[in-house]
Amino acid sequence: MFLVVVLAVIGLSLGALGSAIVQRLSNPVARYRQLYLGVLLPFALLSYAVFRLLGFGYAVAGGGTGTVGTLLATFIELLVAGAVGLAAYAPTVRGVRSVRDIELSTGRALARMGRYVLGLSVFATVVIAPLETGLPSVVLLAAVAVLVVAVQAAAPWIIPVVRSVRRPDESTGATLNRLRERAGLTVRDVRILDTDREEMADTTVRGVPGYRRLFVTSTFLDAFDDETATALLAVQAGRQDARVLARVVGGLLLTLVPLFVALADVGPLWPLVGVSLGLVVGSLWVARRGVRAADDHAADRVGPDAVADALERYAAVHDMEPSRRRFANPFSKSPPLGNRIDRLREQAAE
Rank of each mutant, 00 (worst) to 15 (best):
S13V: 13
G119A: 08
T228N: 12
A246E: 06
G62I: 08
P42V: 03
L79N: 14
T219K: 04
T125K: 05
R197H: 05
V190M: 01
L269D: 14
V151I: 06
Y48D: 08
I192A: 12
V60N: 12
A316N: 13
E350F: 08
P322R: 14
T255G: 12
L272R: 01
R178M: 05
R325A: 15
S332F: 01
V266Y: 13
V162W: 04
L185R: 03
N339T: 00
V151N: 06
E170R: 15
L12K: 10
A44D: 00
A183C: 12
V9Q: 10
R166I: 03
A111F: 14
F220C: 10
R115E: 10
E199I: 09
Q23Y: 05
A129H: 04
R212I: 03
L7Y: 01
V216F: 14
A308Y: 07
V273A: 09
V307N: 00
R345Y: 09
L78H: 05
G11V: 04
L72H: 06
D241L: 11
V148S: 07
L131K: 05
F224T: 09
V257G: 00
L245A: 14
I10W: 02
A328T: 06
L214G: 00
V162L: 13
V205K: 07
A88R: 00
R345L: 12
T255W: 09
V261R: 04
V122R: 12
L7I: 00
D295F: 11
P271G: 09
A143G: 08
D225H: 03
D342N: 09
D189I: 11
E346V: 03
R324D: 10
A8H: 06
R206T: 05
L269M: 15
P156A: 10
S334Q: 13
R166H: 08
D225A: 11
S283E: 10
A49I: 11
V96M: 14
V291D: 07
G274M: 01
G18Y: 10
L253I: 04
L78N: 03
F2T: 15
V4H: 05
A316C: 12
G11P: 02
L193G: 03
A90R: 06
S137A: 15
S26Y: 10
L277A: 15
L254Q: 05
N177M: 14
P322L: 13
D196I: 00
V4Y: 05
I158A: 03
V39E: 09
A348G: 01
L344P: 01
T195C: 05
E181Y: 08
G250F: 09
I10F: 07
T175V: 07
S121G: 07
V22C: 05
